[in-house]
Design a protein around this nucleic acid. Structure first.
Length: 776
DNA sequence: CAGTGAGCGAGCTTCCGCTTGACTT
């Protein structure tokens, strides 16, 4: 029997808090939300003021029962969930799910996990803020209505199992539109002029690099300029020095951590979150899903101590950062090390690297500015009005740079600036070389997972807990793919002036290379076009910001939640009905041309399972023929010849063991079929030219692998096999698989043993198997 | 990790935000 039950969201937090409270406090965790709208249907009663139909989430039944039991016996139940909209709702749902009595239930909040903060909170309990809960209900119901009415519309109009929602559809839109911008982008070129001067001081030779602030539009202009420089004199006419400073970046939020881990460590956002979770659970960092840049007073004093001890007092500068993002709910601190004196930690390599990144960023955020001196040297050219400028930069005091420098998305476009040699006004300079290099304007950058998160945060779309899942959803739905793209060589002109001789050259550079970028698929493009056409309001980049304003009004008690939903729903539902009636099926159909043999039309479009080629008319008496498109082919770019090529499958390429071998292209790529068995082609194999010898090789290779998988088989019954699989050994009978109990040795099982195991497992009721989302 | 196709059809798919262990085919 416990006096007091405290409930928080996360077990790691529960563990920490328990230490601060006495023996008469038991701290448990709810593991997030315990109730949600019933999953199978829309579960909002439109006729009855949008009354939500909640159920205990299936994975929370156990914990709810456990909490119920403890709560019944406890004298007081303290609901200590986060102080934001979702946190308040979790507490309210707990009251409902656990049947908590009002007079023994208390709501408390604290912003820091310290003994004082918690005991202070216990002294100042309050009731549940129903307005805030209603704001959450409005958010929840709106998302359900949008998601569960739009998605079925897509099933009808485009393809089954698609999805749409307030957050994911806008994320897809960003990627589709960026790709359109890139397609429409016309690159132009201009000539950048740089000069090198030789400086000879006390027999020490160094080079001064300078640049013309202006660029020339054409090669002729650049040539003309270089010609004029032939006989010129170069004189330093002024040297300007000015102080500058650099300030550190604020501590990490979920979004900035994902961005930096992507740039500096090359982590996809899901990996960052997984590793951060491990660090959090082992007590090494604070909570990793946060939108706050705030550090607690305790953290600030730890930082001060650590910086003073490691770098000296002049490196300390305590700063309070303010969260810019309007949508921030700030229920947590920024992401920081729990103990600042741990500069590194034990753990695997990912954990070590991510921790180090967090440690450096946090420490740097409380360090002094870096002080610089920037120098501009203006160099006169006697034969023209133009001036060269040489730029230098000296670090006077490193400050936070001693520890950490944030990287940027645009790479190192800025030229390296360093220390200039000693120079004086009036000094004549000796020219080594002037180079006029053709430079091209760059198309807007494609999104990486992390830069998409950054953009979503700017638009206020999604929350720290959903950035990574959203990105994996839009990939799972095949709206976008994360891919590398080979670059190509681009020619450019370069003109140089050296020893009074002008030389023209054509050089080549690699460009267009993309690494782990997000590209829209055909389906992504078609779904987006459909949604933007018929649901412009929902796909609007400001939609979330606008409804958030209304949620805030509900939270303040200025608006009734179901009235807000009603105002939204009636026009929205009309839109759904109207679209259902008016719009045609969107298949993205494109006429490629006519089959030269028959003159029949050939189309590229989206089929039930993805992009396909159709030969003939859907309405025609003679049913059309279909062929799936290969990976990498797209409705937009496939040519008639490539399309006709696809109808050459399945193709017979010979006989093996008296049975035909054929090649075809399936859902998972090209494959070889032999005796009703399938063998995938390797990436290096070309289905158009693969021969019998290679096909046999593939068949034998797979047979060998199968053999290695086989632990035991039985002469008496060849349908029963003991195999080694992903989760260890198992028994396979026809197409059914069964686990082998841990206490049995798979090698020594008899046929009878196997049959017993099968019988046993058939008798025990199967647990519902929920499939893990595919890895992104 | 392995899995390998359809235009008759039944039944299914789907949202966003909280939070971690499931222990399978």
């Amino acid at each position: 029997m416990v006096e007091n039950l405290v409930i928080v969201e996360s077990p790691a937090k529960a563990k920490t808090i328990e230490k601060f409270l006495g023996n008469d406090f038991l701290v448990k965790s709810s593991f997030g939300h315990v109730r949600d709208l019933f999953k199978k249907s829309i579960s909002v009663d439109i006729e009855k003021d949008f009354k939500p139909n909640y159920e205990i989430s299936s994975d929370k039944k156990k914990i709810v029962n456990e909490l119920k039991k403890i709560a019944k016996e406890a004298k007081t139940v303290w609901l200590a969930t986060d102080e934001d909209r979702e946190g308040e709702a979790i507490s309210w749902h707990l009251v409902k799910a656990l049947n908590l009595e009002e007079d023994k239930t208390k709501r408390i909040v604290f912003h820091e996990i310290t003994k004082t903060a918690i005991t202070e909170a216990i002294k100042n309990p309050r009731g549940i803020d129903k307005n805030l809960v209603d704001a959450q209900q409005a958010r929840r119901v709106l998302d359900r209505l949008v998601g569960y009415e739009l998605s079925p519309l897509l099933w009808k109009k485009i393809k089954p199992a698609l999805s749409a929602g307030r957050v994911q559809s806008v994320a897809v839109r960003l990627i589709v539109e960026r790709e359109e911008d890139i397609k429409a982008f016309k690159s132009t070129s201009s000539y950048k002029i740089t000069a090198n001067f030789e400086i000879n001081k006390d027999n020490k030779i160094s080079v001064l690099n300078a640049e013309l602030p202006k660029r020339f539009k054409t090669k002729d202009e650049a040539l003309e300029f270089l010609n004029r420089c032939k006989s010129a004199e170069y004189t330093i006419i002024s040297i300007e020095k000015k102080p500058a400073k650099k300030s550190p970046a604020p501590p990490f939020t979920t979004s900035t951590l994902q961005q930096e881990a992507s740039r500096k460590l090359g982590f996809p956002v899901a990996r960052t979150m997984l590793v951060a979770q491990q660090l959090y659970e082992s007590g090494k960092i604070t909570y990793m899903r946060t939108d706050s840049v705030n550090l607690s007073n305790l953290a600030l004093s730890m930082a001060k101590k650590e910086i003073t001890e490691s770098y000296g007092a002049k490196y300390v500068k305590i700063r309070k950062y303010i969260t810019k993002s309007k949508s921030a709910q700030e229920a947590h601190e920024a992401i920081r090390p729990t103990y600042f004196n741990n500069q590194s930690i034990e753990g695997d390599i990912s954990q070590k690297r991510l921790y180090e990144l967090i440690w450096k960023r946090t420490i740097a955020s409380q360090m002094s500015d870096a002080l610089l001196e920037k120098t501009n040297v203006n160099i006169d050219i006697s034969t023209t009005q133009e001036k060269f400028i040489a730029k230098g930069e000296i670090l006077l005091f490193d400050g936070f740079l001693k520890v950490y420098l944030e990287s940027s998305d645009d790479g190192d476009s800025e030229a390296k600036k360093g220390v200039l040699p000693p120079l004086k006004i009036g000094e004549k300079l000796l020219l080594q070389e002037i180079i006029a290099m053709e430079r091209f304007t760059q198309y807007p950058p494609r999104y990486t997972e992390a830069s998409l998160v950054k953009k979503m945060e700017e638009l206020g779309i999604g929350r720290p807990s959903t950035y990574a899942p959203t990105i994996s959803t839009i990939q799972k739905r095949e709206y976008v793919v994360k891919e590398d793209r080979e670059g190509y060589l681009r020619k450019y002109n370069q003109i140089s002036l050296k020893n009074n001789i002008i030389k023209e050259e054509i050089k080549a550079e690699k460009t267009g290379y993309e690494k782990a970028k997000l590209f829209p698929t055909d389906i992504g493009g078609i779904v987006n076009k459909f949604l933007v056409q018929y649901f412009k309001n929902i796909l609007d980049y400001n939609f979330t910001a606008n409804v958030e304003r209304e949620f805030d009004e509900i939270a303040k008690g200025q608006k009734i939640w179901n009235e807000m939903i009603k105002d939204f729903y009636s026009p929205f539902h009309n839109q759904i009905e109207e679209t259902l009636e008016k719009s045609k099926k969107h298949s993205g159909e494109r006429l490629l041309g006519q089959d030269p043999k028959t003159g029949i039309n050939v189309y590229a479009k989206i089929g039930r399972y993805g992009p396909i080629i159709q030969k003939g008319e859907t309405e025609a008496e003679q049913k059309p023929k279909f062929a799936g498109m290969k990976k990498g082919q797209s409705i937009d770019t496939i040519t008639l010849n490539e399309a006709l090529e696809l109808f050459k499958y399945p193709r017979n390429i010979g006989e093996y063991e008296k049975e035909e071998i054929s090649v075809a292209i399936g859902r998972f790529g090209p494959y070889v079929k032999h005796k009703a068995l399938f063998y995938s082609l390797k990436k290096t194999d070309d289905p158009a030219s693969i021969n019998k010898e290679r096909a046999v090789e593939l068949i034998e290779e797979k047979r060998k692998k199968e053999k290695e998988k086989l632990i035991k088989e039985f002469k008496e019954d060849t349908s029963v096999k003991i195999l080694n699989g992903r989760w260890g050994p198992y028994i396979s009978i026809d197409k059914n698989n069964f686990r082998i109990p841990k206490d049995k040795d798979p090698k020594n099982l008899s046929l009878k043993d196997c049959q017993d195991i099968v019988k046993e497992s058939k008798n025990t009721p199967k647990k519902k198997y929920t499939r893990k989302p595919r890895k992104s």
